[in-house]
């Protein structure tokens, strides 16, 4: 058994992991729908994850932004909200499967970061999917949902003690709450 940092493992097997996710996706969706979606979902997520695992700053905001883009893509292509859950779940399974097949041991801290990042991505994707549906009905609700999701993602990272409240994640939370406040305080337009 070889102990390998997760960022090296993902870097070495990036294409294989994407291919496995694509295969799982094909079992649920028509092949013609695969290409545009997979490019903005799993590959983008893997790149953000590698950046954080290499010792960079937490990629909370980038992971959520990428996942939101993917959630919007899923909605535009007519996929149900649950697809966002299954796609990122496929990636979790692909990583653990490949680790076993290659006799690789991945450290508990790396696994924790992987799981936390996947949760953020799933939450971002399903929120954007739900927001997209809300936007068709009510623009203000859509803006509030986006801001609420940003605040929730930042709070979750802070709550788990992964980052300090005085850093960029704390700033995201503060900014999101201030924007929600401003939005709710804005004078309502009176219909003519």
């Amino acid at each position: 058994m070889v102990n390998v940092p997760l960022h090296e493992f993902i870097g070495a097997h990036r294409e294989e992991l994407i291919a496995r996710c694509t295969t799982e996706l094909a079992k649920r969706a028509a092949p013609t729908t695969i290409a545009p979606r997979i490019n903005h979902g799993v590959p983008f997520f893997l790149d953000q994850l590698i950046g954080e695992l290499r010792g960079g700053a937490p990629k909370t905001e980038d992971v959520v932004k990428g996942a939101r883009t993917h959630g919007r893509e899923l909605l535009l292509q007519g996929f149900a909200i649950a697809e966002g859950v299954y796609e990122y779940g496929d990636l979790r399974r692909a990583v653990t499967d490949l680790a076993v097949e290659t006799d690789t041991v991945i450290g508990a801290e790396d696994i924790r970061i992987l799981n936390r990042s996947l949760d953020l991505a799933i939450a971002g994707a399903v929120t954007q999917h739900a927001c997209g549906q809300a936007a068709a009905r009510d623009g203000e609700s859509h803006d509030l949902l986006i801001l609420l999701d940003s605040a929730t993602a930042a709070f979750e990272a802070l709550r788990k003690g992964q980052v300090g409240v005085g850093g960029s994640t704390g700033a995201i939370l503060h900014r999101s709450l201030a924007s929600m406040h401003a939005l709710l305080d804005r004078p309502k337009r009176i219909p003519a």
Binding site: N115, I122, V126, L148, D149, T152, A153
Partner: peptide
């Protein structure tokens, strides 16, 4: 609770 909190709940 928001839909993202549903995910974090199970996470």
């Amino acid at each position: 609770y928001s839909v993202s909190q549903v995910v974090h709940d199970y996470g």
